[in-house]
Amino acid sequence: MNALQVKNLTKRFDNVVAVNSANFEVPEDTIFGLIGRNGAGKTTTIRMMMNIYLPDEGEVIFRGNKVGQEFKDRVGYLPEERGLYKKMKVIDTLNYLAELKGKSGKAVTKKAYEYLERFDLKDRANSKLEELSKGNQQKVQFISTILHDPEFIILDEPFSGLDPINTNLLKEIILDMKKEKKVIIFSTHLMDFAEKMCDHIAMIDNGKIILSGALKEIKQKYSQNNVSLNYTGDISFLDSLPFVEKVENFGNTTGIRVKSNDDTQNLLRALLDHNVIVNKFDANEISLHEIFVSLAGTEVEAVEKEVKK
């Protein structure tokens, strides 16, 4: 069952197509990652999913109906650029944002104090936001995202600008939410992170969804006949081997695609025969980063593509 279904979503700004007929699904009980480079269209997509932006075309379906207020009430949103009212007291801020979601009363205030205690902020409840350090302001913002007990949590580039302590804190929150079977949607340009956290992903590049689905299936599909290699030595001879289809340098690792599954053994043998020192040889393994680069090119290539246009 899909919690959210994004259908043909398109948004233009001044004739620039920010999101170009995007299609993907977010299933129930998952951590969903929207992955792409900066400026690929992630924030615009997320804003349309929450009905902050109206799409020029397409729609977002939430459990069978178009997204609207009902969805907004059930979502907790942490935007990439964070901010709260500077002159408002911490506890007032938390109560106000929860009340906008339809949750008010003593129970909410009590819960707010519980969170503040958990995040070591209990003694700051009556301080103004501007009196808090930046890290503590971020903590207050995390609490405001989850205080109303949302079913959905949408985090836009959640780790940008966080210190290591808050990064861990946020990870903890995400995992807690996962345990509680909430749907977590986040956007990120950090592939490693997405790979570790997500069940489902959608990759976006230049406003277009270039790949989406369950991470496991995607990796299976792309890892067939793929070898991920770390080595020292010269591997230029590989290009002349008949069973090697493609050699790609991803920086940290080199990805090699062979013609059939049996050829992986031949590849290893050939490497050893040519005195290449093999540090890591991972058959049927491919990283999300590798998939992304093979689909969208590296950052450098993307810039070149852009220039050619």
Binding site: M50, I52, K72, D73, V75, Y77, P79, E81, R82, G83, L84, Y85, K86, L97, L100, K101, Q141, S144, I154
Partner: peptide, 10 residues
Amino acid sequence: NRIVEVLLSS
């Protein structure tokens, strides 16, 4: 200060 984006999510 971008609070508006938080508000508009509600």
